[in-house]
Amino acid sequence: MIDQEMLVKPDPEDGRLYQVVGGIDHEGKPVEAAVINERPLTIFLNGREIVTAMTIGDHPEYLALGYLLNQNMLRPDDEVRAVDYDAEIETVVVRTTRQTDYEEKLKKKIQTSGCAMGTVFGDVMEKFETVTLDSQARFHTSWLYGLQKAINTMPSLYLKTGAIHGCVLCEQDRPLIYMEDVGRHNAMDKIAGYMFRHGLTTTGKSLYTTGRLTSEMVIKTVQMGIPVLLSRSGFTAWGVDLARKAGLTLIGRAKGKRFVALAGTERIVFDADPTQAHDEPGHLSRKGSRDDE
């Protein structure tokens, strides 16, 4: 039922995204392990090279669009004439009708804490500070418990290989779009690109991520206009501070029946008995490795 309702879901059987490598285990016995592939993708905007990101290589068009949107280099009302992907030279060219001002934005580029070459530009805060999130939106704890079960048990590259992050666009207790990549910011950008390309609204939506709730993830969520951000991992202080300033509901450490909300708590509706939720032992996840990387 979940698969029928989802617009995009992980494809752990796509052999282009991973490879099997031989090695030995802790007892010195031969083993084989699936390891994720990562490759460069260079993004151009109207003929100008913007950035080269490391990615697993799926959904390159959505990644390019979402990246440019979340860096405030594309506006939501921009008309995109074409998105051209060349697999041989690993490039995506986004072409717009309006002349963009990306050259000035490139001068303000700074490095952030996002893994796998996450970048943010100095003026993204201009858009962040003008966004008004839906104050009437509500998020039910029953939805959280349903999402955790659906997402954590769904076949994915994470379960197959580890070393990867996932982000999920959700509607109430249903996952809609599940993207994975070596960087959580890439997975988020793919969702933003899909929403832009297909005209999806943010009404009734939330975002789930497997990674830390950092400033970058909060900024991207707010810029996308989504009022709720969830994670099974923890927080950074700046991420919490920005979420509070923006009125974003920020829920972390969501494992089993437990969670902690540090911002936007007025949106949370406690409609489920936590004693009835499936609990997880301790603070460890897949194969005993910590999932807050």
Results as ranks from 00 to 15, higher is better:
residue 201 T to W: 03
residue 50 I to C: 05
residue 87 A to V: 06
residue 292 D to Q: 13
residue 120 V to F: 07
residue 267 R to M: 08
residue 16 R to D: 10
residue 202 T to N: 10
residue 68 L to V: 01
residue 226 I to H: 01
residue 193 G to R: 02
residue 246 A to R: 01
residue 161 T to V: 03
residue 183 G to I: 04
residue 37 N to W: 04
residue 274 P to L: 08
residue 169 L to T: 04
residue 197 R to I: 05
residue 149 K to M: 07
residue 225 G to N: 09
residue 71 Q to S: 07
residue 177 I to A: 02
residue 51 V to E: 06
residue 5 E to F: 10
residue 215 S to T: 08
residue 246 A to D: 03
residue 148 Q to T: 02
residue 212 R to G: 03
residue 118 G to P: 05
residue 204 G to S: 04
residue 278 H to V: 06
residue 25 D to Q: 07
residue 36 I to F: 05
residue 81 R to W: 04
residue 259 F to D: 00
residue 216 E to N: 10
residue 101 D to V: 07
residue 76 P to E: 14
residue 147 L to G: 02
residue 138 R to E: 12
residue 293 E to G: 08
residue 179 M to H: 10
residue 219 I to D: 02
residue 176 L to K: 15
residue 252 G to K: 01
residue 203 T to Q: 09
residue 176 L to C: 11
residue 257 K to F: 13
residue 40 P to Q: 12
residue 79 E to M: 09
residue 136 Q to D: 13
residue 258 R to M: 06
residue 186 N to M: 11
residue 17 L to A: 01
residue 33 A to L: 13
residue 161 T to P: 02
residue 53 A to L: 15
residue 129 E to S: 14
residue 116 A to E: 12
residue 193 G to P: 00
residue 127 K to T: 14
residue 175 P to F: 12
residue 88 E to V: 14
residue 141 T to Y: 06
residue 262 L to I: 14
residue 91 T to N: 03
residue 240 V to A: 08
residue 265 T to S: 08
residue 171 E to W: 09
residue 258 R to D: 14
residue 140 H to K: 14
residue 221 T to L: 02
residue 154 M to I: 04
residue 206 S to T: 09
residue 22 G to Q: 02
residue 74 L to Y: 13
residue 260 V to A: 14
residue 287 K to Q: 10
residue 73 M to W: 05
residue 133 L to S: 01
residue 201 T to Q: 10
residue 226 I to D: 01
residue 244 R to N: 13
residue 3 D to T: 04
residue 68 L to P: 01
residue 241 D to A: 13
residue 62 Y to I: 01
residue 291 D to I: 11
residue 62 Y to N: 03
residue 167 C to A: 15
residue 98 R to V: 08
residue 132 T to Q: 15
residue 90 E to R: 15
residue 247 G to R: 06
residue 177 I to K: 01
residue 210 T to L: 13
residue 252 G to M: 00
residue 129 E to Y: 11
residue 118 G to V: 00
residue 229 L to W: 00
residue 293 E to H: 15
residue 236 T to S: 13
residue 117 M to H: 12
residue 48 R to L: 13
residue 252 G to A: 02
residue 113 S to W: 12
residue 70 N to A: 04
residue 86 D to L: 06
residue 119 T to G: 08
residue 155 P to C: 11
residue 193 G to K: 01
residue 259 F to V: 04
residue 74 L to E: 09
residue 144 L to M: 14
residue 132 T to N: 12
residue 3 D to L: 07
residue 136 Q to E: 14
residue 176 L to Y: 09
residue 56 I to A: 01
residue 245 K to M: 09
residue 195 M to E: 03
residue 5 E to N: 14
residue 289 S to V: 10
residue 178 Y to F: 15
residue 41 L to C: 04
residue 286 R to W: 10
residue 29 K to H: 00
residue 90 E to P: 02
residue 207 L to D: 00
residue 22 G to A: 12
residue 58 D to G: 04
residue 153 T to S: 11
residue 264 G to S: 04
